[in-house]
Simulated assay, not measured.
Amino acid sequence: MLELNINNETSRLKAVVLGSAFSSGPTPKIEEAYDPKSLEHILAGTYPVEVDMVSEMKTFEEVLKKYNVTILRPQNIYNYNQIFTRDIGFVIGDVFVKSNILPDRERELGAIQFIIDQVSPNKVVRPPEEVHIEGGDVMLWNEHIFIGTYKGSDYKEYITARTNKEGVDYIKSLFPDKIVKEFDLVKSKIEARDNALHLDCCFQPVGRDKGIIYKNGFREEADYFYLVNLFGEENLFHITRDEMYNMNSNVFSIDSNVVVSERNFTRLNNWLRINGFIVEEIPYAEIAKQEGLLRCSTLPLIRE
């Protein structure tokens, strides 16, 4: 049996589901784009190709192996994108929550069912149908659970709005002992530089007391200041609009002092090193064209 244990984003990683770029299918049609950044690259003819994405994920896998992480991979679905495992489920404490994802992506959940089957059945939950929630919007910080959402009355019109109010309420009811804090995120269907697809597109903790943040990703300034007050201004690395677009907040922690980051994130990587982190720099810019990066490609199961 798998004894799940996830209480924050940065403790030593023991086991993770890493997505897969194998047989990821052709470039989507314009009407199949899930987000404005993918659409941008489809239109420009720069959408990533499988061989490059497989290569990038292999490098990520090698870094995880270097730190003796147990790596599980989804069963392969022919001609289908299975890179972003973060969307399809997440672990809080010792509970596996299956996401209610976009209907087209339900097959991705089936491809990791053999892993979920290794978890005690009473520790696996599936929210009711009206609950929308994806792992990219759920971030654990010890006694806190941070959740990205979108509170606009036009929620239903946004394919980029992935977690609703019912999703927040569901997590509150499931984990009454946690401090559940929701963050209303800026969404755009047409401009990727103004679209925080998930919470990890504009915020993520690193280490024991630090974080990466994009102020304009929050619809309410009070939500931004909540994090500033919690972490301290001096502990936050503020990213620019272009750095947010390039997914600088979507790095991945293997340990409280080890961060996997994209090799082009020069300013961020320097700040991390100055603050005592080991930075494992890897190429991931092709996968980033789909508005997802390192955190999006992982579904952590066990941390120390």
Rank of each mutant, 00 (worst) to 15 (best):
F114P: 09
V17G: 02
Y170C: 08
V97K: 11
V91P: 12
S38C: 10
N100A: 10
G148H: 10
N68F: 00
P28K: 02
E166T: 08
M57T: 01
E281C: 07
D223F: 04
V168Q: 14
A111W: 01
D200L: 03
I302E: 04
E130R: 11
I101L: 08
L102K: 13
E182V: 13
R107K: 15
V168N: 14
I30P: 04
P128H: 03
E143Q: 10
Y78K: 15
V258D: 01
N7A: 15
A196M: 08
D255Y: 07
V131A: 07
A44M: 13
V228T: 06
Q82W: 01
I254M: 04
V168E: 13
R241L: 14
L39S: 13
V138H: 13
V125N: 09
K215I: 08
G136F: 11
M57P: 01
V63F: 05
V95D: 08
Y226L: 08
L72H: 00
E62F: 06
N122T: 14
P176Y: 06
I101C: 10
K66A: 01
F203W: 12
I213G: 12
N269A: 09
N68S: 01
A15P: 06
V95R: 15
E262C: 15
S99K: 12
I282F: 06
N195A: 05
Q113W: 10
L2D: 01
P48A: 02
E166I: 04
F203C: 02
R303I: 03
E56N: 09
R295F: 13
V279I: 10
E134V: 02
S261W: 15
L64G: 04
F84W: 14
V54E: 11
F183V: 04
I179F: 14
I92V: 09
Y78M: 14
I42E: 01
E129C: 03
P103R: 04
T27Q: 03
E243M: 13
P128V: 10
G207E: 08
Y67P: 01
I274E: 13
I190F: 11
N257K: 14
R73D: 02
L64M: 08
I212M: 05
D169K: 12
I115K: 01
F277Q: 10
L102S: 12
K123W: 14
I112V: 14
V131R: 03
W271M: 05
E56V: 11
I239C: 14
V180M: 13
F277R: 07
H132A: 13
R107W: 07
G93Y: 03
Y67T: 00
